[in-house]
């Protein structure tokens, strides 16, 4: 039951991604009980979709709609209330070594320098070898922090901290990279640069065969720029409002952001986002 946006009017062939299903969200509902009132609050309701191997999926929705909750459930940090999330056919029960999360705030350890922050995920997974250490240094160079390897987080700018955050997530060679609004707190210029960098790193990093990513944002331009596929979430509780395949050629450059095709996709995403404004449930029904 895939929801199609403009897909009919655009060429069929996917730009990336194979036909193998990798992540399955099987009628997933997530909610939590308010600590103060004890009332159950749904965050996501009946999310049902598959993500194929190799897809860069962006989930977009207004703030507070439950998209971060969904990502945390995929990460294994938050339990699913109903339904099941499967990765490679296995239902997730908690965090796993095949997944990495790039946090919204950099969440670096202030007592560790850049190199040791990146090495932490390897250390935690008991995978500190000369080979992985060398990989970590390559990755730090790749994210452009070679010169500040020995610096401490408080000596870095916001953009640099997020690069460390990204390197820490990539160093374990995750099959599924989860990114929770990683550039949300950055200024517009840095954010644009980081989007471009992410695409570059995503393509250059030594990740082996698999490179799946789920990226959360509320920025439409960012979504279209990065995504193979955009999932639009309705307002809280989040349900799937639209599923849009972004058929734009790669590599994408910042200059492409003003091209008519790019703007067309942006308008399309926006229309689904705004549709959700009046009555989320109905709009979700409509788009089916």
């Amino acid at each position: 039951m895939e929801i199609r946006g403009l897909e009919e009017s655009l060429p069929e062939a996917p730009l990336s991604g194979s036909d193998t299903v990798y992540v399955e969200s099987d009628h997933v509902s997530i909610g939590y009980r308010s600590k103060r009132t004890g009332i159950y609050k749904p965050a996501c309701s009946d999310l049902n979709f598959n993500i194929k191997r190799g897809e860069f999926v962006v989930i977009i929705g207004s703030s507070g709609c439950g998209k971060t909750t969904f990502l945390e459930a995929v990460a294994g940090l938050v339990p699913v209330t109903r339904g099941e999330i499967r990765i490679g056919g296995h239902a997730i029960k908690g965090p796993g070594k095949e997944r990495s999360l790039v946090f919204q705030s950099p969440s670096l350890f202030p007592w560790r320098n850049v190199r040791d922050n990146v090495l932490f995920s390897l250390q935690a997974q008991r995978n500190l070898t000369p080979e992985t250490k060398a990989r970590a240094e390559d990755l730090i160079a790749l994210v452009g922090l070679k010169d500040v390897m020995e610096s401490y987080p408080h000596e870095l700018s916001g953009g640099m901290k997020q690069r460390v955050n990204l390197a820490r997530a990539l160093v374990t060679q995750p099959q599924l990279l989860l990114l929770d609004e990683p550039f949300g707190a950055l200024d517009a210029q840095t954010r644009e640069m980081m989007q471009h960098e992410l695409v570059r790193i995503w393509q250059a990093a030594d990740l082996g065969e698999a490179r799946n990513a789920i990226f959360i944002t509320h920025d439409v331009e960012e979504a279209v720029f990065l995504a193979d596929r955009i999932l639009v979430f309705s307002k809280s509780p989040a349900s799937l409002a639209a599923d849009i395949r972004v058929e734009l050629p790669r590599p994408r450059l910042p200059a492409h952001k003003r091209s008519p095709e790019f703007l067309k996709f942006q308008d399309l995403v926006l229309s689904y986002l705004y549709q959700g404004d009046s009555n989320p449930r109905e709009s979700a029904e409509d788009s089916r």
Binding site: G94, P95, G96, F109, W111, F120, A124, Q125
Partner: peptide, 24 residues
């Protein structure tokens, strides 16, 4: 956030106490 990072990196209890909790 530190706890979430440690959980996400699959840090064991000993690593958490020694490399996160103690220095923090």
């Amino acid at each position: 956030d530190y706890i979430r990072v440690a959980r996400m990196c699959c840090a064991g209890r000993w690593t958490f106490y020694r490399s996160v909790l103690f220095p923090a």
